[in-house]
Simulated assay, not measured.
Amino acid sequence: MVGLAGVIATAAALEDGSALAHSAHSSWTYPSACCHGDPVTGECGKIPSTTVTPRPDGYVIILRRPGDHQKVTHQDRYFVPYDAVIPSGDDNFHICLHPTEEHENCFFAPADAI
C-alpha cells in the first residue's frame, strides 16, 4: 500500500485547476483529469459504500444497478489497487467512469478508508 503522502501527491498532480473539472456536489471538485469536465454525462459520482469491498491488494467495486452511479446500465466490476486510490474530499466513495461505464478512470475513498 502506498503511503497517504504519495496518494495526496497524485491527487494534487491530477488537479490542475482547469475549468474542465466539476463539482462533487459538496465542498470539493473532481480533478479535471478524472472527469474530463463533462457534468452532463456524469462521468464522476458518489457511490454507495456497500458497493466497495477492501481486499489485501486493493478495492473491489461492484456497481449493480443504475442507482449506484449515473452512468451504470448493468452490473459492472472494477478493481482498484491501493496505490491508485485518491482521497475523496468528503466522507464518501466516488468513481469516475470514462469513456464508458466499462472503464474506471479515477476512484476516491474517504481518508479513514485508505
Rank of each mutant, 00 (worst) to 15 (best):
I114C: 04
G58C: 11
A33F: 06
P81A: 11
V40L: 14
H22G: 06
H74F: 12
C34R: 06
D83Q: 13
D91I: 02
T51N: 10
R77G: 00
A5G: 10
T50S: 15
R64K: 15
K71Y: 01
T51K: 09
I8N: 05
A12P: 00
P54C: 06
A13M: 06
E43K: 14
P99K: 08
H94I: 05
S27K: 11
T51P: 01
C96R: 07
A111P: 00
Y59I: 04
E102I: 04
S49M: 04
G17M: 08
I114F: 07
P110N: 07
E102F: 09
I86Y: 09
L4Q: 11
P39R: 13
I86V: 10
P87E: 03
L4V: 12
Q70H: 04
L63N: 00
D16Y: 04
P31G: 06
H103D: 13
T50G: 08
G3S: 14
A13Y: 09
A113S: 13
A24T: 07
A109I: 07
V2F: 07
F93Q: 03
V60N: 11
H25I: 05
P110L: 04
P87I: 05
H74L: 08
A84G: 00
D38P: 10
V2Y: 07
Q75I: 02
T29W: 05
F108G: 01
P81Q: 03
H98S: 14
T51M: 08
F107E: 03
T41K: 15
A11T: 04
A5P: 08
E101T: 01
C44N: 07
H36C: 08
P54I: 06
D76Q: 13
V7F: 00
S88T: 03
S26G: 15
P99S: 12
C96S: 12
A109Q: 05
S23R: 07
A11S: 09
Y30S: 03
W28G: 02
E101P: 00
P54D: 08
R64W: 04
G58L: 10
G89T: 09
A111C: 00
Y59C: 04
L4G: 00
P39C: 10
A5K: 14
D83G: 04
D68T: 01
R77F: 02
C34T: 08
T29L: 09
E104V: 11
T100D: 13
H25M: 09
A113Y: 03
C106A: 11
D91K: 11
S49P: 06
D38S: 14
A111V: 15
